[in-house]
Structures are given as C-alpha cells and as structure tokens.
Amino acid sequence: MTKNVLATGLIWLMAALVSGVFVWLLSDILIHGLPQLSWAFLAEAPENSGRSGGIGPIIVSTLLILLVAMVTAAPLGLATAVLLSEFTRYDSIFGRLVRRSLDVLAGVPSIVFGLFGNAFFCIYLGLGFSILSGGLTLACMVLPILIRTAEEGLQAAPNDYRLAAAALGMPRSAALVHLLLPSAAPALLAGLMLGVGRAMAETAALIFTSGYVDRLPNSLLDSGRALSVHIYDLSMNVAGGDANAYSSALVLILLLFIINTIAMSLAKQWLYRRVVSI
C-alpha cells in the first residue's frame, strides 16, 4: 500500500516538474518578448544586424520559403497519397516500397536535409543560396507528413462512396474529385497545416540553403533569412541581440500556436463528421 502512495506522489511530482519547466520557458519568452512587440516591429527592416529595427523582410522571406515548400510538396504528396490509398493494394510491392522509403525519409535528421539541399539544389541544380533552394529542401522534409495525413484522410472516407460511384459507372477520377477528396478535405488541410508548422520550425536545413541575407528578397532566387535562422543568428552571432531574439521567438511561437490550433480543430471537426456520418 505504501508503494502505491509513493508511486502516486512520484508521478504527480514528475508531471508537475514537466509542466513547471514548460510554464517557465513560455513565460520567460512572453515576459521578455512582449515589450518590443509592436506593428512596427513586424513591419520594419532589421537595423544594426538585427539589434534594433524589426523583422519585416524576415517575415516576408519566411512566408516565401513556406509558399515554395507547400506549392511543391502539397500536389506531390496528395498524388502519392491518392495512389497509395485508392489505386494500390496495401500489400503490393510498389506500394510497400514507396511507404518504406517515406518512412526512412521521415527519419532523416534535418541537418542532413541541409547538406543534401546544399549539394543538390544550391550547387548541382545551380539555384545558389536562395529562397527556392530552401523551400525545395523543406518540401522534401515535410513530404512524409503530408502523405501520411492525406492517406489517413482518404482511407477514412466511407467505402459506400466508392461502391456507389462504381455502380453508377463513374470514372475513378470523377469519384475522386467529386466524392473522396471533398470528404477528406479537412484531413488534407490539417495535414497541410502540420506541414507548415514543421517547416516553419526548421532551422538547420535552412542555414546553408536559403542563407542569412536579411534584406527584402527581390525574387525567389535571392537569399532570404527565415525567422528561425534570425533567432539563431541574433542569439549566437550578434552581441546585444537578445531583446529582439526574444520578440522574434515570441512571434514564431505565436504563429506556430495559431497554425497548430487550426490544424487540431480541423482534425477534430473531421473526426466528428466521420463519427456522425456512420
């Protein structure tokens, strides 16, 4: 019996410890980041290597990198997921090979993506340190997440849809466009949001692909500094950059929190619809 009481105490203690550290981290960033945060901070260009001024161009670069990553990865991921879930038997060799290689891709460390992106996109394809290189590198990185969520969404679509469409003599492509994809839409969107979140949090893969330049990019072939890279640079390489690093970290966390919440509410709504439609 004493063992039971001891275990209860210990487990509550550990949970309190974990929550405590988490609250410490968040409140620290909130307290130090909030004072500098303003519309001007979000819009202005960084000055004096980022010690003063804002993060306007950096937000633009971040969004452009995300745009490139998602515009590339979303169609590719969707097509792969449709093939795996609608046109391939689960035990076919091709399907198994594709799934296996995606599992491996999901485990590759981000710094290795950085090395690959540098060697392939920047140098081999000649894109240089650019928003395009960074975005494409991130596209490779988020592909497994997109495919897994899209596949789950499609597999959860009621089988009646497929049978009814076949009975009506609809081509598979029409059934896909008019029935299956709309029914899986919230899951697809939730997956997209998760991918955006993962891409936005990434630093190591971007340092030697999209680079450090903190000016407003003129084209996708310009180097652009992502928000996470900005935080890294301010805290490691710029003495006296801590205040602005705090605010940038706060902006990054807030953006991620918003994206995460949207993803979760979409997933929940989708789950609800699934339960109700049965």
Partner: peptide, 21 residues
C-alpha cells in the same frame, strides 16, 4: 495538450532559452 505544444516548439527556441536562462 501541453505535451503536444511542447512537441511543437522549434528547436531554435529551446536552444535560445537554454542559452539565455
């Protein structure tokens, strides 16, 4: 939900907080 949030915090923010605090 807290653990899920913890999973979503970028590594650079963990690093920054660790360095400063």
């Amino acid at each position: 939900r807290l653990i899920e949030l913890l999973a979503g915090i970028p590594s650079v923010v963990y690093g920054f907080w660790g360095l400063i605090t």
